[in-house]
Design a protein around this nucleic acid. Structure first.
Length: 548
RNA sequence: UGUCCCAUAGUAUAAAGGUAGUACGACAGAUUUUGAUUCUGUUUGUCGAGGUUCGAAUCCUCGUGGGACAACCA
């Protein structure tokens, strides 16, 4: 059965353009500003832009929109390139808006010559005041009707550094009474005596987004310039520049940006979390950045699958984080080797087991591949999870309790005989009897138990640090709450367990290596992990249908 | 109180005037040496009112609700 997947609205546009012969092939671009790390919302855009090109045999440029030197940095350029590659995409050309500064300057001159741009000496406040409001028209000022010659001279002097920051701007001469605010003589160039990460000190004037983005698209012959909804009002300007500059007509299409529950997606807020120390950095696994998901143990394909499932449309959305979690679980379930780890250990002593004996028991690494096995050492003293024992069990309790029987995964069925508590009432030791005939794969005991728990031999287990991550916020949409979004940070978003135990062969696991810790979830080796001081991050829990 | 964009189960996303479907979630059951996985089933939807039409989620009008727009940011 070949069920045809329906097209999203951008694919429909592309197919129509291709079908009509408007283009022979498409060219898209991914245009990040190098002033922050990429997040999952960017992944949606990356998958859309690169995915479209792949699907329709076109190409995609990676273009850094680096027209504001004061906020941009090569650190971000490098991280962005790394993340795009990691997601599995290859760009046709690595480009920078700053590559076009000369060309952009000439285009600006062209507009001045056509009488469609002028130098304005007004202060920022004055310009803002004269701009009007969405409901009131703006007004024209005294600089608007300077002669072409004067504008040409002034603009050149701006370029040559004759003026200080903010003294003058170049504006397009469109319509101060336009209903669309963006058409009220938008600023094209501003003066910034700032060092640029690529052009150095060559320029002291820099183009604004609207006089750089569309022109860069046009220079590259981008056919479909895809951006998010907040640029809808810019489209009129985008087209105006193209028409009046008489350059290649790239077309802009807008889709709804990704929002996800229990996180924030704006760079501004993400930067605050980093700068104010709420997280350890851009790749803190609680962040929604690509680098954080990577560190947390997500795979590129799980993120691509997610982006495919959420679709592309024009309505505002708030995607349930559980969909992303589903995507990574689905993938890791198939490939992550199973291993046992005890996070909150309590000692279990098998009273009828010889203290000098050790058995190497066979355990499967993947449930669907019984031939793929390892051995696990079993002995008299074991670590089990504190949570797997209840002195007074709740109803439907399948695990350990006084008198109750459970199976130790890949080992024996045991019966709990007694337990010891300390002065604070904490259970410190549990005693049990094992059933020799119930050995895994050789069970002749005829006993059926409901519960299976994991364990580790005390003298064989390796100590490790395990970091458990929960959602960073306590509310679905922190950005929409009243007041500071940081008031809704989850105080329990990170739990560090320094004294967990794992199977000994995990000492040799390398950074990024992924496992399923049975009954806990998926984990991977953190980049801070060192031999002898292993650190594991929880990628995602297993689904848990048990409710107390 | 201007212009623009948008409105389909809890969340997303299909149905180009002709059976409202899919995924995730939730719930229930079966299987299970992971309370996982797998399998089965259930649940819940076209914002409202008019109109056009044999027939409207789809087209039109008017409401209602949400979002965007007044950075020398992108």
């Amino acid at each position: 059965m070949t069920e045809e997947k329906s097209l999203n609205f951008i694919e429909e546009i592309v197919e129509e353009d291709l079908g009509k012969g408007k283009y022979e092939s498409i060219l898209t671009r991914f245009p990040p500003e190098p002033n922050g790390y990429l997040h999952i919302g960017h992944a949606k855009s990356i998958c859309l832009n690169f995915g479209l090109a792949q699907k329709y045999k076109g190409a995609t440029n990676l273009r850094f929109d680096d027209t504001n030197p004061v906020t941009e940095d090569v650190e971000y350029v490098d991280s962005i390139k790394f993340d795009v590659k990691w997601l599995g995409f290859t760009w046709a050309n690595e480009l920078y808006s700053s590559d076009y500064f000369d060309e952009l300057y000439n285009l600006a001159v062209k507009l001045i010559r056509k009488g469609l741009a002028y130098v304005d000496d007004s202060s920022p406040d004055k310009i803002a005041a004269e701009k009007g409001t969405p409901t009131e028209p703006g007004i024209e000022n005294e600089f608007r009707n300077r002669s072409i010659e004067e504008n040409l001279l002034l603009f050149e002097q701006m370029k040559n550094g004759k003026f200080k920051d903010g003294e003058k701007v170049l504006r397009a001469k469109i319509d101060m009474k336009a209903i669309n605010m963006h058409m009220r003589d938008p600023i094209m160039y501003r003066i910034k005596h700032a060092h640029h990460h690529r052009t150095g000190d060559k320029w002291v004037i820099y183009p604004m987004y609207d006089f750089a983005h569309g022109q860069s698209d046009s220079i590259e012959h981008i056919t479909h310039s895809i951006c998010t909804l907040e640029f809808v009002p810019h489209r009129e300007l985008y087209d105006w520049y193209i028409d009046n500059l008489e350059i290649f007509p790239s077309r802009q299409y807008e889709f709804a940006r990704l929002n996800m529950t229990y996180t924030v997606m704006s760079k501004r807020r993400l930067l605050q979390l980093v700068n104010e120390g709420y997280v350890s950095g851009w790749d803190d696994p609680r962040m929604p950045t690509i680098s954080a998901f990577r560190r947390k143990g997500y795979t590129p394909s799980s993120i691509r699958t997610f982006c495919d499932k959420i679709g592309v449309a024009r309505r505002d959305n708030l995607i349930d984080i559980s969909l992303l979690e589903f995507c990574i679980r689905e993938e890791l379930n198939a490939i992550a080797p199973r291993v046992m780890a005890v996070l909150h250990p309590v000692k279990l002593i098998i009273d009828n087991y010889d203290e000098n004996e050790t058995e190497e028991l066979v355990s499967e690494n993947l449930p669907n591949d019984p031939a793929n096995t390892r051995t696990v050492s079993f002995s008299k003293e074991l670590w089990i999870e504190k949570e797997d024992f209840m002195e007074v069990p709740v109803k439907k309790w399948f695990r350990l309790a006084p008198g109750a029987m459970v199976r130790l995964k890949s080992a024996y069925i045991i019966r709990c005989d007694s337990f010891i508590k300390d002065n604070d009432g904490n259970v410190t030791e549990i005693h049990a009897t094992y059933i020799p005939e119930s050995k895994s794969h050789h069970d002749t005991s005829g006993i059926n138990v409901k519960g299976t728990i994991h364990w580790l031999s005390v003298k064989h287990a390796t100590k490790a640090e395990i970091r458990l991550y929960e959602r960073l916020f306590t509310v679905e949409n922190p950005a929409m709450e009243e007041g500071d979004f940081k008031n809704f940070i989850n105080p329990h978003s990170l739990e560090i367990i320094p004294g967990a135990f794992v199977e000994p062969q995990l000492q040799h696991a390398v950074e990024g290596e992924k496992f399923q810790f049975i009954r806990h979830g998926y984990f991977c080796v953190d980049r801070e992990s060192k031999p002898g001081e292993m650190v594991f991050n929880r990628t995602v829990t297993l689904k848990d249908s048990f409710k107390k």
